[in-house]
Structure formats: structure tokens, C-alpha cells
């Protein structure tokens, strides 16, 4: 299979960046997208050229490290799939593929396709946790959590933090990421206690990191590898309003 690649190359944060064209001849259908990039890099390095820098690690769709815009779509054309799980069988012989980094002010490009997503960590730092120290925990079965609560908390907790929601959003909003964490913890009795202060802190942090607002286009859920529900965003809004109205310091 022959593939024509147009890959975004950018030396560093300040560099303007540009597309570079590459042609690969022996791509096979069973290759993953990242293995195709490996193949390209192997070729480039042997010519003494700089390899295309891209983020990747586990290659089984769970670490959230990989993520590029493939033909203008975060993680490529398959819905609810990470870049590493995308295989070349989704492309045709002779296809031209545009590969760009995730783009948002909150995700500055480090080099080529690598971006800095520490802004997402900062949101968690601001309050995305349960305040419990090691050793303080009571016996696990003391507080029953119903099957439904646990399952719906899990649905939200499954977020892998890849940032595709931000990259897919026309407003570059991190509402799905933040909403997922708020919902995960608000659904469980262990996390529910701190919901008000957590939500206010995390929402404010989103703003400080330069993420945009949510206009409920629901594109994020479609591209989210874990299919996190957009209703988590509504939950965040609810918890925020509730906190603003009812929370006493």
C-alpha cells in the first residue's frame, strides 16, 4: 500500500512550523498508524534526517499519551479510538494523510507532533482528588456503593486524559475532561463530600489554563476514546451552580 504523508514539522515552541511531504511504499493493512510512523522514522533516520517526534507509549489505547490530528480529526477517522489503535486498514492505497499535532492555546507544541498537555494535570492539581492520606481509610465495605453508582462513576473515571476532547472542540474547551473527573468523584460517597470546593477550584483552573467554554456541540464525546458522556459536563455545571448558591465556606 502506498501512503502519502503530509506531516507537521515544527522545531520548537517558537518555530512557525510547516507541512513536509513523505511517501511510504510498503505500508501493510495490519500495521497500526503509529507503526507506520515508526516505519517512516526508521527510513528518515537511516538517511540521517531527524525523526518525526510524536508522543506514544502503551500502544494499547489506555495511557493517553498518543494523539495527533489525522486528516483534521483527533485520533483519526474511527470514532472512540486512540491513535495507537487506528490501523492502516482504515486507509486506501494512494491515500494522502495529513498529520498535525493537537492544537489549542493550552497545548503548546513541543516539537513536531508532540504537545505539552500539562494544563490537564494542573486542573487535577487544583482539586481532582479525594483528600485522604495513606492509612486513614476505613474498611472498604463499610460504605456500600451501589452497583449503579459504581458503574456510572466508572464511566466517567475511564477518561485517559489524552486531550482529544480539547482538540475536537471548536472552542478548545476542557469541559469534558474536567466534567468527567468531577462526575467520577461526585458519584461516589468517598468523593462526594468535597464536590463543592473541588468543582469551583477545577472550573476556575480551566479558565486560568486558557481553555475555552463549552457550547454543547457534543463533538468531544464522539472523538473521546472512552466515549465519556457529555452529560458529565452538565453535571459539572450543576455542581458548580449548586456550590455557588449553597456552599458555605
Amino acid at each position: 500500500m502506498k501512503i502519502i504523508l503530509k506531516i507537521w514539522r515544527q522545531k520548537n515552541r517558537q518555530d512557525k512550523g510547516e507541512f513536509c511531504d513523505y511517501v511510504l511504499e510498503d505500508v501493510t493493512r495490519d500495521m497500526s498508524f503509529l507503526e507506520m510512523l515508526d516505519m517512516l522514522n526508521n527510513k528518515l533516520v537511516k538517511q540521517g534526517d531527524r525523526a518525526v517526534e510524536f508522543d506514544h507509549d502503551c500502544r494499547e489505547g489506555i495511557c493517553g499519551q498518543c494523539g495527533v490530528m489525522i486528516n483534521g480529526i483527533a485520533h483519526g477517522s474511527l470514532k472512540n479510538t486512540t491513535t495507537c489503535q487506528l490501523h492502516m486498514r482504515e486507509f486506501k492505497d494512494g491515500d494522502t494523510i495529513y498529520v498535525e499535532p493537537f492544537k489549542a492555546s493550552a497545548f503548546p507544541v513541543v516539537r513536531d507532533l508532540k504537545v505539552d498537555r500539562s494544563s490537564l494535570d494542573h486542573i487535577i492539581v487544583s482539586g481532582g482528588y479525594v483528600s485522604v492520606d495513606t492509612g486513614q481509610a476505613p474498611e472498604a465495605n463499610n460504605i456500600p456503593v451501589t452497583y449503579e453508582e459504581a458503574e456510572s462513576a466508572f464511566d466517567a473515571a475511564a477518561c485517559i486524559g489524552c486531550g482529544a476532547c480539547v482538540a475536537s472542540c471548536k472552542n478548545s474547551s476542557a469541559a469534558l475532561f474536567t466534567g468527567a473527573k468531577i462526575t467520577h468523584l461526585a458519584r461516589l460517597p468517598q468523593g462526594e463530600k468535597e464536590t463543592a470546593s473541588r468543582t469551583m477550584a477545577m472550573v476556575d483552573q480551566m479558565e486560568q489554563e486558557n481553555f475555552g467554554h463549552c457550547s454543547n456541540t457534543e463533538a468531544c464525546q464522539v472523538e473521546c476514546p472512552e466515549n465519556i458522556s457529555v452529560l458529565t459536563i452538565a453535571r459539572m455545571n450543576y455542581e458548580y451552580n449548586r456550590a455557588k448558591i449553597l456552599f458555605k465556606k
Binding site: 482528588y129 479525594v130 485522604v132 495513606t134 492509612g135 486513614q136 481509610a137 476505613p138 474498611e139 472498604a140 465495605n141 460504605i143 456500600p144 456503593v145 451501589t146 452497583y147 453508582e149 459504581a150 458503574e151 462513576a153 466508572f154 473515571a157 467520577h184 468523584l185 458519584r187 461516589l188 468517598q190 468523593g191
Partner: peptide
């Protein structure tokens, strides 16, 4: 055993029975 207690307290959504037990 303490690990399970700790993880549950941190908000790890372990699989549950309908009644709420692990």
C-alpha cells in the same frame, strides 16, 4: 487488605454487587 481500603477511599470505582458491596 489495607490496599483495598485505601483505594476505595481514594475513589477507585471497583466492581460492586447490587447491594453495594465489593
Amino acid at each position: 487488605a489495607s490496599l483495598i481500603d485505601q483505594a476505595v477511599a481514594q475513589g477507585v470505582p471497583f466492581g460492586r454487587e447490587y447491594g453495594g458491596y465489593l
